[in-house]
């Protein structure tokens, strides 16, 4: 399936900015938060007043993506999110406790559901087509991609809008920090991977893709395949999964021009990649992306956007000039909490 357009609201200046790498945003602390655009220029102010931050991030990226692709009526809208609209859920539950379950504001309740973003986009477009949201932890975005792929390959759809969205809220950050996911000490995102320790930096983002069955003249890249696997027992099983996946794509590891991995500076997390980086990915340039967007369950959507962006640009700006080759195939390998692992293969059109 072809990526006709892509849009990304992230902790970097990625929205509507093709030169984001020359002006990387630095963060010190234990998290990275999205740089948000002026939503009033993108969404009707009458509608925007009810939207919480994640809904605005999702709707703006989705609508921008459709606009770039020149598609007003997609055949399907599919999103992936692990936590959904957390701020609305928090507002609703807090009011329920504070007001003794009486006189509850309907807006936060209506918008607390995980599928609010895909539904809001459909409402804005008056799109009555297939609409689905995958809530599968660290595999949410991958499952949304798989669903899109099946719709496109089976001829059920020609154009599908797919997005991966998650937000950090004050409460979710505090809870996940207590669970040991984030660094106790202050760290810079640029130093995160060079100073491994316990925990990483929190992240968030909203990346959308307009995926098409047929190629067009302006495609960013092609997504060849997506695969996810659950709680592998050891590195051997991961290697086997990678091998099976590449075989199914008629590719081998030596053909990969760039590998994007999900290292995040957490010792336990990064140990999973160690053997692969030393042996399996030794011949290909490898880059990491979580210093740019932080760690969150649908961060592979950011990685997919980054891969497509670099393929479209014709080379990888992260890689030293001596290692530069034209990017034909890019492999993304990421895992979230060593529970959900995923492989996404992209290639130049």
């Amino acid at each position: 399936m072809y990526i006709r357009a892509a849009s990304n609201i992230s902790p970097q200046n990625t929205f509507g900015n093709q030169r984001f790498l020359s002006e990387l945003a630095g963060y010190t602390g234990d998290g990275l938060t999205c740089i948000e655009p002026d939503y009033k220029a993108l969404i009707d102010p009458k509608i925007i007043r009810r939207m919480s931050r994640i809904i605005k991030m999702g709707v703006a990226a989705g609508m921008d993506c459709l606009q770039q692709a020149g598609v007003n009526a997609p055949d399907a809208i599919i999103t992936g999110t692990a936590y959904g609209c957390l701020e609305d859920t928090n507002t609703f539950l807090t009011k329920m406790v504070q007001q003794n379950e009486e006189a509850l504001s309907p807006t936060a309740f209506i918008q607390s559901t995980h599928n609010t973003i895909s539904a809001q986009i459909a409402l804005l477009l008056q799109c009555h087509q297939y609409n689905n949201t995958f809530v599968n932890g660290g595999a949410s975005f991958e499952n949304a991609l798989l669903d899109a792929m099946m719709l496109l390959y089976e001829g059920e759809a020609a154009n599908v809008l797919v997005g991966g969205i998650d937000e950090i809220t004050t409460n979710s950050h505090a809870i996940l920090k207590r669970m040991g996911l984030y660094r106790r000490e202050q760290v810079s995102n640029f130093d995160l991977l060079n100073t491994p320790g316990k925990g990483t930096m929190a992240g968030e983002g909203s990346a959308f893709f307009m995926l098409s069955r047929e190629a067009s003249d302006n495609d960013w890249a092609k997504i060849d395949g997506v695969s996810s696997f659950y709680k592998p027992r050891n590195t051997a099983e991961i290697k086997q999964q990678i091998s099976i996946f590449l075989q199914s794509q008629n590719a081998n590891i030596h053909e990969i021009d760039l590998v994007i991995t999900g290292n995040n500076g957490d010792l336990k997390n990064d140990a999973v990649y160690e053997q692969l980086l030393k042996y399996d990915f030794a011949n290909a340039p490898v880059i990491n992306y979580k210093a740019l967007c932080g760690e969150y369950p649908t961060s592979s959507a950011f990685a997919t956007w980054l891969a497509a962006h670099e393929i479209k640009a014709g080379g990888c700006s992260f890689v030293p000039e001596s290692d530069q080759t034209s990017l034909k195939k890019v492999l993304i390998y990421n895992h979230y909490q060593n529970i959900h692992h995923s492989l996404i293969l992209l290639s130049a059109c």
Binding site: R50, A103, L104, P106
Partner: peptide
């Protein structure tokens, strides 16, 4: 939805 919000406002 605003009508519901106004009902909540009057109650609260």
């Amino acid at each position: 939805i605003d009508a519901l919000e106004l009902i909540v406002l009057l109650q609260q």
